[in-house]
Design a binder for these strands. Sequence first.
DNA 1: GTAGTGCATACTGTATGCAGTATGATAGAA
DNA 2: TTCTATCATACTGCATACAGTATGCACTAC
Lengths: 219, 219
Amino acid sequence: MTGTLTADRRLNISQQLANKLRDMIFDGELKAGERINEVHLSEALGVSRTPLREALTLLVAEEALTSVPRRGSFVRELTRKEFEDLYPLRAILDPEALRMSSVPSEKTLATLESINWGMRAAQDMKTRVSLDEAWHLELVSGCDNQVLIGLITQVMNRFRRYGLAFAREHAIVETANQEHIEIIQALRDGDMDKACEWLRKNLTSDKEPILAWLDERQG
Amino acid sequence: MTGTLTADRRLNISQQLANKLRDMIFDGELKAGERINEVHLSEALGVSRTPLREALTLLVAEEALTSVPRRGSFVRELTRKEFEDLYPLRAILDPEALRMSSVPSEKTLATLESINWGMRAAQDMKTRVSLDEAWHLELVSGCDNQVLIGLITQVMNRFRRYGLAFAREHAIVETANQEHIEIIQALRDGDMDKACEWLRKNLTSDKEPILAWLDERQG
DNA sequence: GTAGTGCATACTGTATGCAGTATGATAGAA
DNA sequence: TTCTATCATACTGCATACAGTATGCACTAC
């Protein structure tokens, strides 16, 4: 498990570590609330503490970790409050980005359909979630606003821990696929209002089940 | 200039450095496009490279710097494109936050008025901009959504370099004060729609002058 | 039995040194 | 003159060592 950083020569070790740690958090290898021991973790990953600390700094900035000076870094807990804060934001940002977009080309629409097919075919929940994210990023990519796309990506990344943990326990959502199809169809028809409405629906449909799961999980 | 980190014992040097560097960027001591020499800068600030590099990592995450592996960190340029990307976002996020808020208490309204007075009285542009930011944060603080407030703060921080650089050369904006008063009045009247409309106006009124200034500046 | 103090220990914070790589200059050939 | 190759130099990347601090436990006093 631990070893084998991807050894991408374009990235320095700090950045590779940040990617690795992100995965470890999503996969539960680093558990919510856990304190990060820099010495142990750096040894387990076969690097020194310096690049590890730089990676930790990055993850703190991403709010995946919290840092208490002179106490260390901790994996952020999943809380009902954070979930409720995160949840409405995509439904605000994504339709706004879609409206900013130029009319999508047939090529873009074909890509969306292709990703949607892949999602349907995907075996494990992790790739399915990942393809869902790719689908939405493709959808909003036409807005030509890197900062907005960055905000969406941030919210998406913070949300992922909730969505992934939930999806692993519940083999959900034929519905998401169907909603995607509706959105694509509306765009083909040039009906932006309808597309945005379906998008909003797509981004709010799984709130209740996740909330129920969260409540059950932490009592 | 350089020395004297605030020596806040609650923060470690990396975090103090991040604050210091942020200021140096806003104040133009570190110029747009400039390459950061870790050795020189750490010596000038009287620290070693390790905490400096951690601070740089943070600023890269905040998009104040860019990082090119094995080449170093660079102060981000101010570009027309980034400005145009940033500009509409506050007008999307802030009204949304305001709508989420509970009806503001008289205490909150009084605080808003007080900050607005301070703004009017402020001598230098830096404190005026800073009070304007404080005013807007106070306005949206009622939404009880830390993530949304975080996004607004991010956009605000990235925007600050544009607003500050512009404001320094143009002793603007009686209008901002007046718009704030309108918003406060609308809230007092319980007219949320009107408040949001004025807020949107307040957040879009200085686009053209800043754009003109930007174009003139970089030819 | 409980509260408080001192000490051992383990961790984070910071400095420093060395290795590897990008860059610019200089020299040589076309 | 211009292009290329080689080398010197200066910087970033990373490891390591040391300093400072938080924490838990034991011991003592009450």
